[in-house]
């Protein structure tokens, strides 16, 4: 009987060498995986904030401007314009995944095992690893750096993503720790998580930023890869409990949820919800270059962002339905 190949060899052969690294790094990790820490963050809650963006999301929105936020493991981003063709990455790559094409680096992602050695040696930051594991202590050190700014401005800490509820333990502990230091906390979520998880973290959350992508389950699934039943149920539970400040965030996506009829329907659905603020967030295409650096296709390239006039018209519709807390945000 022929011997079975090892799992790791099998994955390598099938062009999924990266899964080996992911399997190893995900075992027993008590740390948080984040792709960005943004200081002087002024769009994700009141005041001057630090936004910690956790990597990994159950939704795969086609218009996502942070595609590096979706997968729950570190990835390689390649900004080819920075490459000087030095070839150092070739020397350290054990998978033979890297070639130079006209003095510019080229990565065959089916061979890459995400060991990140190329990113370590790249002198020009052409190849970068996105996604960094951080302990609770390290994250709190980072959060503490701008404490004075939070206090003066009524700001605080926002956990965003990706989906912070995708790393429930880390999110819970970080929020707890923030509350222990009397820092104001906000949670920016898609709402796609079990209530058991959500209920626990809400205790340590002052403000919830909650996205509504679409009210129709089928259309929601088409745009994001998941249905919306869980999301809408969770929203109702949060609002009904009435203990947390809630800001709704409505991404306005062309040819998806930007029709007058839909916005009217949305206004009717949220009109009785005691939310503090409803933000209309315009779709934008600035995330497009990130898709290229991740070696993925941008599926949304033929859509133009809605202009200011269009957003204003949609805001007016919501206002005419009695919603006076709608703002156009960036």
């Amino acid at each position: 009987m022929p011997e079975l190949p090892s799992v790791s060899d099998f994955l390598k052969e099938k062009g999924m060498a990266r899964l080996n690294t992911i399997r190893e790094t995900n075992q027993g990790v008590a740390e948080g995986l984040m792709f960005n820490i943004q200081r002087y963050s002024i769009q994700d809650g009141p005041g001057i904030r630090t936004t910690i963006s956790l990597k990994g999301c159950p939704l795969k929105c086609k218009w996502c401007s942070n595609p590096e936020s979706q997968n729950p493991y570190p990835e390689i981003m390649v900004r080819k314009a920075r490459c000087n063709g030095c070839g150092k990455c070739l020397d350290v790559c054990a998978c033979g995944a890297i070639t130079l094409n006209e003095d510019t680096v080229q990565i065959d992602r089916s061979r890459c095992d995400l060991c990140m050695k190329c990113a370590d040696v790249c002198p020009t930051e052409t190849i970068e690893s996105t996604g960094k594991y951080m302990s609770l202590k390290e994250a709190m050190e980072e959060v503490g750096k701008d404490e004075l700014f939070y206090r003066n401005s009524g700001g605080g800490v926002t956990l965003s993503g990706g989906e912070p509820l995708y790393q429930p333990e880390f999110t819970l502990n970080l929020l707890k720790e923030c509350k222990e230091r009397a820092l104001s906390t906000a949670l920016d979520i898609s709402g796609y998580a079990s209530w058991r998880v959500l209920d626990r973290v809400l205790k340590y959350t002052d403000l919830v930023l909650f996205d509504i992508k679409h009210l129709e389950p089928a259309i929601h699934r088409k745009g994001t890869g998941r249905g919306n039943q869980l999301i809408l149920e969770n929203l109702k539970k949060i609002v009904d409990a009435g203990q947390r400040r809630v800001w709704l965030r409505i991404p306005i996506i062309p040819n998806y949820n930007d029709s007058e009829q839909y916005i009217e329907k949305l206004a009717e659905a949220v009109t009785k919800m005691p939310v503090e603020k409803i933000s209309l967030l315009s779709y934008h295409e600035w995330g497009k270059p990130k898709y290229e650096s991740l070696g993925r296709d941008y599926l949304f390239s033929d859509s133009a962002p809605p202009g200011q006039e269009r957003l204003q018209a949609l805001k007016d519709i919501m206002q005419s339905k009695g919603l006076h807390n709608v703002t156009i945000d960036y």
Binding site: N36, Q38, Q43, D44, S65, N66, R79, A81, S160, D188, R249, S279, L281, H284, E285, W286, G287, K288, P289, K290, S293, D329, Y330
Partner: peptide, 26 residues
């Protein structure tokens, strides 16, 4: 001259990138 302005940030809600990494059109 992107090399002279590598810390110039463009930010909107939930998104930030370095200006020099954006498409020329953007």
């Amino acid at each position: 001259h992107p090399e002279k302005h590598s810390s110039l940030m463009v930010r909107v809600a939930g998104f930030s990138a370095y200006f020099i990494d954006l498409d020329k059109n953007l």
